[in-house]
Amino acid sequence: MKVLGIETSCDETGVAIYDTEAGLLSHCLHSQIDLHAAYGGVVPELASRDHIRRLPLLMKEVVRQAGLGLGDIDAVAYTAGPGLAGALLVGASVAESFALARGIPALPVHHLEGHLLSPLLSADPPAFPFVALLVSGGHTQLMRVRGVGDYALLGESVDDAAGEAFDKTAKLLGLGYPGGPQLAALAAQGQSGRFRLPRPMLHSGDLDFSFSGLKTAVLNVVQGADWQPAYMADLAADFQLAVVEVLCAKSIAALKKVGLKTLVVAGGVGANRCLRETLDAALARRGGRVHYPEPALCTDNGAMIAFAGAMRLAAGERGAVARAVKIRPRWPLVELAPPNMSAA
């Protein structure tokens, strides 16, 4: 079965085709970084308009790359939430219209489920069950994953997520958009240990996260009497290390709590080199293993949506034809249920 995946939750237009027998056939991604850079962040209306412009072209391109025709597509999976309402509506409308025109099923997919399952697309995929650390944009969550749709929340951010903290701290330091990757690049040039930054909720006794206080601590340093711009890289390194140490400690605590040794890390922050090195070393010492998506699939992309849709179809979910277009800008991952034989 060949599944077309469409991702338009925020500022990246992703389209892909996944074949349940042959694997990922093609995927294309257009980033809106240049479009939003002048504003220092995503402008929702501009994002929606750009999705409208890009989506038809990308759909044609992935079909061409896969050596298929539009008539060869068996189902369409699309991001229905969470995300920006206008951006989600673009992808949902196109997907449902295409499915109706072709008489094939359409499946609304949870954006975070796409991220969570994306490491299964790698050459060495993890096996269920595992603990997942989701660090994507405004989400930082630890989940116990027993199978497709079988997710239990172990802990989550109570204020700023890790990705938000990276972006906001980058803005405090005067770095450009997108801030997270630029802050990580700056941190690689610095030496940690100069500044004593907090590790929020490190000893809270639960698996929740909080990073707003860490961002404020950075602001206090920059506004302090002893601050020198020459310390910028060192401050970035100390900030990054504080985030990574909290993420690592909570992930290990989650594995201990549920009695597992396999950790899956997914989402944009999962591409952070310092986080990967720290988690790899920590799990190796405990006889465990960390799995990540392929680097190209860490960001929002259509491949993860096509794959999540294909996994649900393979597990028995039928999707629906001629469904009313519905999106869920706010959609807790724990509300998902395992695939069933009825229409979603």
Results as ranks from 00 to 15, higher is better:
A80G: 04
A75R: 10
G41L: 12
V43K: 00
A66V: 13
L58D: 10
L133F: 13
P105I: 02
A66C: 12
L134I: 14
L116C: 06
L55E: 01
S136N: 09
R54L: 15
P126V: 11
A127C: 03
R54W: 10
G41T: 07
M59S: 08
A77L: 10
K60R: 15
Y78I: 05
H139I: 09
A101C: 08
P56A: 05
I52Q: 11
F128W: 03
S136D: 07
A92I: 10
A87V: 05
V63N: 07
V145G: 00
P44T: 14
E61L: 13
T140L: 08
S118M: 09
A77C: 03
A106T: 06
L55N: 09
Q141T: 06
S93H: 12
E113K: 05
I104Y: 11
T140S: 07
I73M: 01
M143H: 15
G103T: 09
L107V: 15
V109A: 04
A75K: 12
A85Q: 12
G91P: 12
V135A: 14
T140W: 13
R146M: 14
A77F: 09
A80T: 03
G71A: 13
L89P: 00
P125F: 11
P129Y: 06
P126Y: 00
H110R: 10
G83T: 02
K60V: 05
V131N: 04
